[in-house]
Simulated assay, not measured.
Amino acid sequence: MRSLIVLARLLDYPTRALQQAAPEMTAVIKEETRLSPLRRETLVGWIRRIAQGDLLDLQAEYVALFDKGRSTSLLLFEHVHGESRDRGQAMVDLLAQYREAGFELDARELPDYLPLFLEFLSTREEAEIAGQLGEIAHILARLTARLEEREADQALATATLLALIGAEDEITEHQDKVRQEKRDDTPAALDAVWEEEAVRFSATSDQDCAVQSAAGQRRAQQRQNEREQVSPVRMMDAASDRCH
């Protein structure tokens, strides 16, 4: 399902290659009959804003949204396990699932990183896609409500994932709770996090899952993209390249 690759790209760190891939992404979304005409039009509008936007501004907005605080994290297991040791085992299990399916994981990426997970799903059958998205629907709904509260375009992507499985109504169940949450991206909240003792995974988990911060991964990816000119076609076919 190529639309999942587009959604993965839209949720990832903005790059020049992403802007250049706008025409191809637009074409994929326009052909996605599983989505309503209004939702397709809304997504195309977002893609257009990315293509026409200032790249540095897009990157700064992305970092402010996803690298400050945990409530909008794109690391799925962080919403379930936080930084506990259980998250390490969950990532090991997910990594094993990827490998069993022949999906090659880049060492820079965590297994539970949502864009990566969507790339994996894009290689699976529709029934499995629906089942896997259904298992994380509660995470997607809460994340969507939080992104909507911050008026972030990325809420369009997570809401679309729920729409694909007919679970978009779940968002409303989380909106009131989200409005009552204290922001975790304020200077005071961030200072409090830094004062907490860091939880360490086991050495085996660190090695197998390449545990590192999402911000660090994106910085590494940005440097890599600057060294290599990634074509829009290769960008859209990344999932196919991973799966052997």
Rank of each mutant, 00 (worst) to 15 (best):
A203N: 08
L4Q: 08
R34S: 12
T123E: 11
R150V: 07
Q222S: 13
G102K: 12
I171E: 08
A145F: 02
P23I: 08
Q132H: 05
I47W: 02
E149Y: 01
A17P: 02
D208R: 15
D112F: 02
R234I: 00
L75S: 12
V6S: 05
Q19T: 02
Q132T: 07
E119T: 02
Q154W: 00
E151H: 12
T26D: 05
A21Q: 07
R179V: 03
H174V: 10
A17Q: 10
L164G: 05
P187E: 13
V230R: 13
A215N: 09
Q89L: 14
R218K: 09
I171S: 10
V92G: 07
I29L: 13
E228N: 06
L114E: 08
E128T: 09
S3A: 14
E148Q: 15
S205K: 04
A189H: 03
I29N: 04
I136L: 13
R146S: 11
A60W: 00
L140R: 08
C243E: 07
G166Q: 12
E128Q: 12
R223Q: 10
R9G: 02
R39S: 04
A107N: 06
P111F: 06
M91V: 03
V233F: 00
E31R: 13
R146I: 09
M236C: 12
Y98Q: 13
D106P: 00
Q59K: 10
R87V: 06
T158W: 01
V6A: 09
T42C: 05
L18T: 08
Q224N: 06
R227K: 14
L56N: 10
A203H: 04
A130Y: 01
I29Y: 02
R142S: 10
S3M: 12
Q20R: 15
D54L: 02
A51M: 07
F103A: 13
A141H: 04
A152R: 11
R124A: 14
P115I: 11
T186N: 05
L164H: 04
H138G: 11
W46M: 14
A51K: 11
R150W: 00
L110V: 03
R200L: 13
F201I: 01
E24G: 06
A8R: 03
E83V: 02
A51T: 03
A64E: 14
D237R: 12
V92K: 10
L105M: 15
F103D: 09
R146K: 13
E83W: 00
R16Q: 14
A157Y: 01
R179P: 00
E168G: 05
R108E: 06
Q97I: 02
A198Q: 13
I47A: 04
I129R: 07
D86E: 15
R39N: 05
L156D: 10
S73E: 07
A188F: 01
A101M: 04
S240A: 15
M236R: 13
Y13W: 08
L75P: 01
A239P: 02
Q207I: 04
G45W: 03
R48Y: 04
E109G: 01
